[in-house]
Design a protein around this nucleic acid. Structure first.
Lengths: 332, 332
DNA sequence: CTGAAAGCGCTAACAA
DNA sequence: TTGTTAGCGCTTTCAG
């Protein structure tokens, strides 16, 4: 493990000169610089980032703590964050909190201990330690869901409105008993989507929809069971608003098991425009969220806050887009 | 930013005692320990991981450099790695090389500069700098594809064999002009799957299949174009082996555009058992790779190598499983 | 333009 | 059991 002083010795200069030469900071005699570079490459020298960061009191890495690596919505956010971070010279490390408070806590700890320059996270929403980021002065921007403390930047979509529009779309398409499969209570997007659904049902003057609402984890299996449960009830729903794309898989499975055809028998609109939405039969109607854009904006906000910590916190709400395909049409 | 000496001052002890008390290493007088803990929490003290790691010359973080965060195959590997890392007390940071040599190089640099304890990566295969990991003594295990240098542990599947079996399955199902959509030349899995396809076609004594082979990026769009190209040719294929699940989306889109029904008109088998495989019509036949398992084994190997760097490098080849659904049946 | 020297925050010998 | 001290490898004043 060659160190800076090995390089200095080999080049016959001081460590300060090596540092200057390699970082291209202040000017160094070209000939010396050449000697340094040569010595460094001969020794296979790689600066010790730990020491450098300790000295500089800063790190060019951003942490991105997301709640599900297997959800295309979050991986698209990741690409957005990554693309802007790259161009600004930051690396981004992804941490998968897995919708688990314990893991989120753990990764937040790692982030502050490793003194990352900033963190983007989609909070699980529980009683976690995100406040330490705040109290440590680590810049944070929340995506998809607000931070419990409510301070700090946030980039999200108006998911309640989007859910309301989607439910209204189903109602206008002629479905009479619109139901909803949403995520666990406490997860903000799940609560909001359910609220939006209720807004729509209420506005349409439909009878109590509570009996047609189920909550399940943001996974296929839970949603499948919940849907079967609903379908087997006395007055089953004739349409479903589904809060998440993994859940959509479970819902479609359940429909298939009960031989209900999406659209004709049971209208379906699901959140997130997954790549396979057009491949299922009939094509799935979705609420498309601008995930990549969320990541992009979040990273820009984060960089701005790193540069100027006194910025006043902002909330950026992006719009979602309803894409009506055939799973929300009764005919055709 | 409270430091260890702030805590020491507040508790009226030395920094060494603080360190010992907080790390629970050697025994400390219970009363002093209590004072230290109290002081630390009052000050909101979080140890500086940079300093600690610099001193200890080690870091409890693993880097996982994968070539596509949006590919379920790789995210499943990530979960496997993460699960074993967690239980061993390591954090894992995910880096997305995006099938891009430049990015891979960059993340490898970050990994050595930050002195991570080890790295798991799926090499793009180009002329990159993975050798620096080796020369720096950073433990590495490759997943999915071998390291160019060929040294080091590897966890993969016998993808050539799997491809051959899948192509043979199509042939046995009665398809006569089996074609193949594979990934870019140079990416090992793409080359291997193509080779496996050729093994099968040759073994069956089918005429030259070269005209029914296309390479495209591991993305939907390229595969769609390639498939359209194939379908519009003089003697179009009546079946396709598809090397990647993102490509499968493009293939199915192309088939739909040309009004060819999977199975009946064109048999299809694709790599990776994605969650939506059973939802498309007809259900998609796939080659299921044990992705989670790959990640698990890779992480275990990595930890073993961190503990004992003299271990002899091993290659673990896991089996893939053909799941025949209806897209590879001509009737029914 | 270059070198000497201090010190980032922490841990691990070594003494007491 | 506790404190003193010496660095880990690097960057950055401050002199020269």
């Amino acid at each position: 493990m060659a160190t800076i002083s090995d390089v200095a010795a080999k080049a016959g200069v001081s460590t300060a000169t090596v540092s200057r030469a390699l970082n291209g900071k202040s000017t160094v005699d070209p000939e010396l610089a050449a000697r340094v570079v040569a010595a460094a490459s001969e020794l296979g020298y790689h600066p010790n980032g730990l020491a450098r960061n300790l000295r500089r009191q800063e790190t060019a890495v951003l942490a991105l703590i997301i709640s599900d690596v297997e959800n295309p919505f979050f991986t698209a956010i990741a690409r957005g964050v990554e693309d802007v971070a790259q161009t600004a010279g930051y690396s981004v490390v992804l941490c998968n909190s897995d919708e688990n408070e314990e893991k989120e806590r753990r990764y937040v700890d790692v982030a502050v201990q490793e003194r990352v320059a900033g963190v983007v996270l989609s909070p699980t929403g529980g009683a976690t330690n995100v406040d330490v980021l705040h109290s440590r002065g680590t810049p944070v921007v929340a995506v998809d869901r607000p931070l419990p403390g409510a301070t700090g930047d946030l980039v999200n979509v108006d998911t309640r409105l989007a859910a309301q529009e989607a439910a209204t779309h189903l109602i206008e398409a002629g479905y009479r008993r619109v139901g909803c499969i949403s995520g666990p209570a406490g997860i903000r997007t799940a609560d909001d989507r359910l609220a939006g659904y209720r807004d729509a049902v209420r506005a349409a003057g439909h009878p109590d929809g509570a009996a047609r609402v189920r909550r399940a984890e943001y996974r296929a299996a839970g949603a499948r069971d919940a849907t079967l449960d609903l379908l087997d009830a006395a007055e089953p729903p004739d349409a479903l608003l589904v809060a998440n794309s993994a859940q959509a898989i479970g819902v479609l499975e359940a429909l298939s098991l009960r031989e209900q055809r999406p659209g004709r028998d049971v209208g379906v609109v699901a959140f997130d425009d997954v790549p396979w939405a057009t491949l299922v039969d009939p094509p799935l109607s979705v609420v498309a969220q601008p995930a990549y854009e969320i990541g992009r904006v979040a990273a820009e906000l984060l960089l701005a806050r790193i540069a100027d910590s006194s910025r006043v916190p902002t909330t950026t709400t992006l719009g979602a887009r309803l894409i009506a395909r055939h799973s929300s049409r009764r005919h055709g």
